[in-house]
Amino acid sequence: MSNENSSISSSTILSQVAVIGDQDTVVGFKAIGFDTFILEKKEGEDPSIMANKIISILRKSYKIIYITESLYMLAENEIEQYLANKPYPILTIVPSSSSQKNIAFDSMKKLVERALGGSFF
């Protein structure tokens, strides 16, 4: 566990808001007072390691956490399982600087369809 934490850029909580993403995306948010965590998928790495790292960040007492689409995709099930029935953190998916796939919109669409039994988007 301590090994994992050391690979995450900062482990102390300064702000109530955090961003998880790749270097290029995160750097701008750091300037405006968000806590930032740089996670990048290495070649051939087990996705469950990445999921564990993300969950360990979610465990910290942030109010709002932004995560890039690509990282969210890597560990979607684990994240949703962890967040179920927890009021905080509020996780919001943002596009990263390099990829935009509208994942946030699609997952919201699914949620709405399940709640209302039809598409309203």
Binding site: S15, Q16, V17, V27, K30, G33, K63, I64
Partner: peptide, 11 residues
């Protein structure tokens, strides 16, 4: 340059 944040956000 960005080692220190320029702003503090409180909710």
């Amino acid at each position: 340059a960005l080692f220190l944040p320029t702003k503090k956000i409180s909710l």
